[in-house]
Design a protein around this nucleic acid. Structure first.
Lengths: 342, 342
DNA sequence: TTGTAAGCGTTATCAA
DNA sequence: TTGATAACGCTTACAA
């Protein structure tokens, strides 16, 4: 269990030069300052000794950890692993390491984990926690490069990577209207959620553009869970029996809506069509296979990482960038023409 | 974007004492060496300045990063997020940070990511990559505390956290036999996989203990994927039409077996019963709901982290520990009595 | 109980 | 083009 780490000094001794020169030779940004022949000898010696720079030493000296804080609600929510891999893959290629933490959608936990990441001296943050309030976001962004995932603020003042929620929800609504549905309801996300909020707005507009009413057909859940959606959808479907289709704000809520329908003898898709959002893994083999709006999870993560890396490079304050990706509709078995129009 | 970090020196100046004393006062392991009154003053001053120790500085000095390398095949495989959260939650409480990397089941990638974790000076490793060969495992374990997840070596020489595969597979076989099945097949994992290997062995023994034959009823897939399982199961079911039930080595393979049966007009569960292994998210709402062996994902991760932490504490070489957790059978809709015995 | 001082492995500044 | 040196912030003998 002995840890023998070779250092710059060891390499220097082997080559017979000063450690500082070894440092310069090995660092791509300073290698041009040193005699190419020496660089070659240093490289060879370093390789032969399995020299690997100590990131704690260089981090201490340079005040950069080459580490990025990644804050998500919950890794076991199937929406996130794809995004996290996009982040990991992209950061790794640039020599950065993500430090991943979960908030469980609890603002206090979020404050705590962000503090712990700051204690770890991360160089920047990727935040995938889509709350509408953002108590410490402004302060954080003054001190660190921050990229928001799946979430923007009203002011658009923070760099972000999002999908076009308006477009995604419109795809779902258009699809249902195309099938002949008129009485379409929305099961929205929790009130504190920014994506939930946006998708509800998008639903309103899409319906309006078709000249359809949303009155008494919009409900919001307490939590992004199948159970919460089941209760909410059940109440809504009971109160508004004319409803023939539901646009849910994400896949879990769609599954809840389908379960609610089933409990009311409204089989999906015959008596009730339901669309989801996200296209989580296995949504193609649930019963019935879920028609849903697919968001490019890996791409979102990759773009967020790229954006943050560019922020890390530019000391100059370039204008705040927003990357917007386009979702697509995946038509499966949970949607069908209504039994009868109304 | 100015980074102002307070240091020990700042705190010392405020209190009017030497930085070394501040260090001692703030470190729980040395606080007893310092006057309680001073400790109190230091704590107050540190809090007022928002002092947070710089882990790069202390890490450089102590040669410990308080960081753990966690190596998994692929985060987007639903088996792993639960385990990772178990690891994260447990390590965080002990002040350790996991560094998560994926191998995509590629030994070369694995070698690369392990090297990058060593470069980052992790204090130990949790390896969830269940290959039967282990080229660098011995060397790695000589230099670092290592805990294996979901995998043991024949010699049992490395600390590990596993589930009782023998028991889990037996639960599935007993369940099917109890339903009246006799011609039970096994769709096994890839040849390189240690869990695949063990579950196949477990299947053989469980069948033997019931006096049932496994001849020509065991196949292995090329990869842990639904597609690979579909092809393998299709071939097996075509060649051995008497088969009435399949024990799959994991949930994906079970889904593939169900799809294969469907393509052969063998509806699950009426004409073909299928069991899975792991109980991934949403296996309760696929079509049909999957009967499967549930492994306690979060617990596995948590136990692995605990075990590694204990290794980190004990310099003494205590005997190699193996934690074995017990899986349970979750009976759902993919299993039923056979149409007719044989 | 506290202070002193050295050093962990790098990088950056300055001088040669 | 290279060498010398100091410093990053912390911990830990050792001395007082």
């Amino acid at each position: 269990m002995t840890r023998v780490a070779t250092t710059l000094k060891d390499v220097a001794k082997l080559v017979g030069i000063h450690p500082a020169t070894v440092s310069r030779a090995l660092n791509p940004r300073t290698a041009h300052l040193v005699n190419p022949a020496t660089v070659a000898r240093v490289r060879k010696a370093a390789a032969s000794l399995n020299y690997v720079p100590n990131p704690m030493a260089s981090g201490l000296r340079t005040a950069r950890s080459h580490t990025i804080g990644v804050v998500i609600p919950d890794l076991t929510n199937p929406l996130f692993p794809g995004m996290v891999r996009g982040i990991q893959d992209t950061l790794a290629r640039a020599g950065y390491t993500p430090l991943l933490v979960n908030t469980d959608n609890d603002p206090e936990v979020e404050a705590h984990v962000v503090a712990s990441l700051r204690a770890r001296r991360v160089d920047g943050f990727i935040l995938a926690t889509a709350r509408r309030d953002h108590p410490f976001l402004l302060e954080l962004s003054e001190k660190f490069p921050v990229v928001l995932i799946n979430r923007v603020t009203e002011s658009g003042q923070f760099p972000s990577v999002t999908t076009d929620e308006m477009h995604g929800i419109r795809l779902a609504v258009d699809h249902l209207v195309g099938l002949g549905h008129r009485a379409i309801a929305h099961i929205g996300g929790p009130a504190w959620s920014s994506t939930g909020h946006e998708r509800a707005q998008a639903f309103s507009r899409a319906m309006k553009s078709h000249g359809l009413s949303t009155a008494r057909r919009m409900a919001a859940v307490d939590a992004w869970s199948v159970e919460s959606a089941r209760d909410t959808a059940r109440a809504l479907l009971t109160a508004q029996p004319a409803i023939t289709a539901v646009v849910a704000a994400n896949d879990q809520l769609a599954l809840g809506a389908i379960a609610a329908g089933r409990s009311l003898k409204l089989r999906c898709p015959r008596a009730l069509s339901v669309t989801g959002y996200n296209d989580m893994p296995f949504m193609d083999i649930v019963d019935p296979p879920l028609t849903t709006v697919r968001v490019p999870q890996h791409d979102i993560g990759a773009e967020a990482a790229r954006l943050l890396l560019s922020l890390l490079r530019d000391d100059a304050q370039s204008p705040v960038k927003h990357v917007r990706l386009t979702p697509e509709l995946i038509e499966r078995g949970s949607t069908a023409p209504p039994l009868r129009g109304d």
